[in-house]
């Protein structure tokens, strides 16, 4: 029962991997395939491999894939134009031919009766695997460590970027800003009102008007800028709120003054 459910799920997800256009969806579908394969391993008396599958594949390898998708650009979808004529048709023919080849070989194979892993797993699956890895496959295991070190070094060398031009100094950067000539100074920051420092409070220009440049363009486009939209924080209208603020400040200063005179 569990096999049929997972078989259908994994085949559908595998088809999803190759037919969705966005790489992120492909990665998610691949995660589904790998998780269902992990359960199939567990069902087949391979609990260690099931956990390694979840931790290494779904946890590490797929996250690496997602990171690279993120770096390369999530929006990069495949174009559907075929660059090689009849590529998809030929791929389908090759797939059918391959399946026929496998099926013929499989049909001719004489499958022995299932022995099951009860005997091999008698001392525990992990113990059995460890016994094999550190005795019969110990050389392959040692070579694996060399492979992993080589891979790590290779990734470091490939991902490293040599700086071919000197790093631009602050002087160079400022020169560049003035050459472009658009807005050499930093944009005015929002929240320069005394009462609020919210991000939708624009800075005031010398003539008292609001500078839309000082707030996030998305907020500026909504058109809800200025103190009147914050009046509800301290009162009904802007003036009322200002009066209340004034009273509060006066109370605090009065208190400080009386304290000083008491001493």
């Amino acid at each position: 029962m569990i096999f049929w459910v997972l078989a259908v799920v994994s085949v559908c997800a595998a088809l999803g991997v190759i037919f969705t256009r966005k790489a992120v969806y492909s990665a998610m579908m691949l995660a589904v395939v790998m998780l269902s394969l992990a359960v199939l391993y567990a069902v087949q008396d391979a609990p260690f491999l099931a956990f390694v599958q979840v931790i290494v594949y779904t946890g590490a390898v797929l996250m690496l894939f997602l990171f690279v998708v993120m770096l390369v650009g999530v929006t990069s979808t495949d174009s559907l134009v075929e660059t090689i004529r009849a590529q998809r048709f030929l791929a389908a023919v090759a797939a059918i031919g391959f399946v026929v080849l496998l099926a013929v070989g499989f049909g001719n194979a004489a499958l022995p009766a299932v022995k099951g892993l009860r005997g091999a797993n008698a001392n525990g699956n992990v113990e059995g695997l460890a016994e094999l890895i550190f005795s019969r496959y110990v050389f392959a295991f040692e070579v694996t460590s060399a492979l992993l070190i080589t891979a790590a070094l290779g990734a470091m060398v490939l991902a490293h970027r040599e700086r071919t031009t000197p790093k631009p100094t602050q002087k160079d950067l400022s020169k560049q800003r003035f050459l472009v000539g658009e807005h050499p100074t930093p944009l005015p920051g929002p929240g320069t009102y005394a009462r609020h420092n919210a991000v939708d409070m624009p800075a005031l220009l010398p003539d008292g008007t609001m500078s839309e440049l000082s707030v996030n363009p998305i907020i500026a486009r909504r058109g809800r800028l200025g103190p009147e939209f914050h009046a509800d924080l301290h009162g009904d209208s802007g003036e009322e709120a200002a009066e209340k603020d004034l009273a509060a400040v006066k109370a605090v200063t009065d208190k400080a003054v009386t304290k000083e005179t008491d001493q």
Binding site: F3, V11, A14, I18, A95, V99, L102, A103
Partner: peptide, 12 residues
């Protein structure tokens, strides 16, 4: 199932 998944991967 393994055959089918392998073929799907190859087609991809």
């Amino acid at each position: 199932l393994s055959m089918i998944l392998f073929t799907i991967g190859g087609v991809g």
